[in-house]
Computed example of a mutant assay.
Amino acid sequence: MGLFSRDTDSGGDSDDENSRSFFEERGFIASAIIIGAVLICLVVWFMARGTNSPAAAPSQSPSTPAPTGQPTAVEPTGAPATPINTPPPATQTAPPPPNSHTGGCHDKSPEQGIPRAAAPTAVTWQYEAQMLVPLQAANGPATTSPDGVRSCFSHSPTGAVLAAMVLLGQVQNSAVSVAALKDRVLPGPGKTLAMAAAEKEARTPPTDPGSVQFAGFKVLYYPQNATQAIVQIACDLNRKAYGAIQVTMQWYRSDWYAVLQDDGTFNGTVEPDILSSLDGYVRFSGSS
């Protein structure tokens, strides 16, 4: 049984139907452990589909805590936002080469400013299965392995954001998810569980992965000369709502790697936020 799944035989009311796991509806039971960040957003969207369901109401404040002593923005209250005013795709530039000796982790003095008001520029968005991920020559990824895993991000706040988004996109792509988890996640019990689930899903990939795209981000934690970064990633959930979840990245062996919880997810027991708007987030999306 995957995360957020429910016993569908225990009741036939509409609330139970609307709150069943999106993983179960889309054949994602095996992948629930892997994609605890972005695909959990799909769970929230599925639960929010029923307008009479309590899950449809937006959270009044973020459920995801920032590290101790770190400020976190309070999301405005109100009706769930329908992202009809999402900005157009980032300026499409020539995509960075698959492998480069400049930029990304090769840059020894990357810009250390935390992006709080404006999105990264000169970004190309490319599909990983159904999801658009950002690529930038300056901050990465600067390397793509023969099996398709993207790596080599700059040691900077922007590099950490791009690394998190690219990995989240790649773990949704069954063609590369196992390799991405193997190469881009720190060792630990969570990694072992995530890889086992990814291998199972790769044998029976879902036929309908749902609709989720990145919508924005904010950097929650990035001290000077950081070895750890915590970013909150916001997703557009089929243009019905926004969901956001926290991802921890660790600077390790000259690149950013994801830190998974012991249960194999990015967020553990912390549920994603349903946002009233993208206020407080840097809007960053490859979809119009």
Rank of each mutant, 00 (worst) to 15 (best):
V178R: 02
Q130I: 13
V178G: 05
T227C: 05
E201N: 03
V178M: 02
Q213L: 09
G148E: 05
Q213V: 02
F217V: 06
P187G: 09
A198S: 08
P209H: 08
L135R: 13
L220R: 06
V133P: 04
G216Y: 07
N173F: 01
L162Y: 12
P206D: 01
Q172F: 07
Q136G: 07
D208Q: 14
A196Y: 03
P134W: 05
P209I: 06
A194W: 10
T144R: 14
M131N: 12
S151N: 09
A226E: 06
T204M: 02
T207C: 04
G190Q: 06
L135I: 15
R203V: 03
L132T: 08
N139I: 13
P223S: 12
P157D: 09
T207G: 04
Q130L: 15
A202P: 00
G188P: 08
G210S: 02
F217C: 07
M195R: 08
V171N: 03
G210C: 11
V161R: 10
S154C: 13
D183R: 15
S177R: 04
L132K: 11
A163H: 01
L167H: 14
P209F: 15
V171S: 02
A215V: 05
G216C: 10
P134E: 04
C152I: 14
F153Q: 12
V219Y: 05
H155W: 11
R184M: 04
S145R: 15
G188I: 05
P134H: 11
R184I: 00
L167A: 11
M131K: 13
S174A: 06
I230D: 08
D208E: 13
N139C: 15
A160C: 03
A160H: 01
P157F: 07
Q170R: 03
M195Q: 15
